[in-house]
Write a protein that binds this DNA or RNA. Sequence first.
DNA 1: ATAGGGTTAG
Length: 797
Amino acid sequence: MLAAARLDATKNGAFLLLLFHFHRRHHDARRLFSTAVCLRPPPFESIKDQALLLVQLQGHIARGHLSRARHLFDQIPTPDVRAYNDLIRAYSSPVAAADALHLYRRMLLQRVAPNNYTFPFALKVCSALADLHCGRAIHCHAIHAGLHADLFVSTALLDMYVKCDFLHDAAHIFATMPARDLVAWNAMLAGYAHHAMYHHALAHLLRMQAQARLRPNASTLVSLLPLLAQQGALDQGTCVHAYCIRVCLDHKVTDGVLVGTALLDMYAKCGSLVYARRVFDDMPARNEVTWSALISGFVLCGRMTQAFILFKDMLAKGLRFHSPASVACALRACANLDDVRMGEQLHALLAKSGVHADLTAGNSLLSMYAKAGLIDQAIAFFHEMADKNNVSYSALVSGYVQNGRAEEAFLVFKKMQACNVDPDAATMVSLIPACSHLAALQHGRCSHGSVIVRGLASETSICNALIDMYAKCGRIDLSRQVFDMMPSWDIVSWNTMIAGYGIHGLGKEATTLFLDMNNRGFAPDGVTFISIISSCSHSGLVTEGKHWFHEMASRYGITPRMEHYNCMVDLLARGGFLDEAYQFIQSMPLTADVRVWGALLAACRVHKNIDLGKRVSRMIQELGPEGTGNFVLLSNIYSAAGRFDEAAEVRIIQKVKGFKKSPGCSWIEINGSLHAFVGGDQRHLQSSEIYRELDNILLGIKKLGYQPDTTFVLQDLEEEEKEKALIYHSEKIAIAFGILSLSEDKTIFVTKNLRVCGDCHTVIKYISLVKRRAIIVRDANRFHHFKNGQCSCRDFW
DNA sequence: ATAGGGTTAG
């Protein structure tokens, strides 16, 4: 009979099913039922059996065929609550979240009442979308249905409020829940942890164990550890690690990877890379996230070489970056490693895998190009980006500044505001250095005002940028004011303030501040010593500089890097101790690089020590005079010695190798607008007036005994021609313009991108005397204050 | 669990 039934299943299946049912032959009924599932079209038309459709629906969902499931669902004439629940549940992944909510709405329209299974799934969707509006509506429905106190429903509500950042409501639900399981406790903890509410989180954790007698599981710790990492709570983190080992939390592989990754991230963020590495090595399994976390840790601690090795190891193991977050990690590593080629490969990967549109990864990419000096590529990418946010704009602003195009940074900032994108602290921290570069005090003051209005004026990083800005705009007094008013300092604050004194030639003040720093228990770092030694160097405090160099290693345990040797050579050479500087270089434990030799070469040029200059230039030629500066110096030395053929030769090599000399340029800010000049510039609207003024001045000071020092002219010209080339150096033009534009009591403040030459230095001294004006010139190196024919510097450089 | 932009020195 069964065989006959099976043969005939398509026609009389419904009849037979009922027959089996009445004869209590459940087994046969079920077998027939399952055969029927495979048949198409659905044979039980006479019954219109929804149960059968439901089974098919579940089959499609289980196999992940969502579109087939949807198709089937739409054929059900009156889907019941179970059908809705099944499909909503299937849709509850973030990708299909919108469909799920749509279905939930349709369910209500069809007057199908949601039940205790519906609400948690629908709420999960709201959590994923952080859709508070929908979440609240569903909360009302749950209350209406009398289900809001159900354990699963209320836990889902709690989670929804947490994910929507409505912690207050979440806490209220938690407090009024009739019963709470570990999931609920964990959800609440995640909320506290996510909002960096350290004390709340810890109290909650203790209550969970004491009152509810619940023991932390993997997801408890996965919430807790990032909080400890952020707080730098290494000791508590270590306790958590011990707990993990005690309760064998790594037994389940998935838990092991999650907890292990969180642990190693905690160690790395607390600066304990050895332990981070040990956790990593002991993990039974690792994934993309684990590797990203470790690489980020090394990058964070500035251990670039090891970060690079890890990066290569990961790729060699066949692992690749896929998720936007880990691509962002990898790109950040590339930016810090200066590995543009790897960055470009990741760019290609992004474009191929469709992660391209991800804002986070896109912003990292933008910043990577900017940091690598490929500003044009950064700009191009910025324009390609489908959506941009304030991070994208900030990255571009800082990209322009880092690549010496500060004026354009202001344009981007303007455009950003025109597009109604709100600048935040990081944007302002990117923008303020643009004012520092340009020495544009008015712009800087505006930015300061803007920062105050935005309520950001007491943020440490903002204040640091302001200190630097005022120092570089010639107002070291305002720098100190900002410094004194800060609520708290970090190492950058101290370093910036010390360096500020340095460029103003205030070595004594720099030293005093350094001692203050020590007294207040701030440990100096490598940068502090670069600042302090170079401030000694600018103030001619050779003995003090040497003293701090020795203290650095012996007392503070900081191993000198190439930068420190560079500073020392500069200190000695500037002070005129050329031979000592030469010996110092030869006694260095590191092989001196081009920059170190360059510092000595610059001193040879100024002190006109041609013999040593020749020896040093030979060294530089062997090393390859990287960058433009040393080519210029080298050729200047030859020029000064009257060996113009060799000077020209150096220039030719420079040109062939593609190093362009950046033209000397000076600028001055008058009433908030910048006026820039290059040597011999006649493009300014008031050009003829400016040159008339300048010629008058020069005529006057020649009567007082000024003689042009033509050794500062680089080309092989006749004396008269040389004089002309000198006369029209850009700083002289800018000063003449300043005299014309500013009333007599105002200080003239000119900024130059290169160093001021010796001849200009002399001329400016005379001008300050004849015109009775205070003149400040900021060049590539430091400040020169001119008054009554004197300069604050001992010598011109 | 990893997660985007920013401040200092040369």
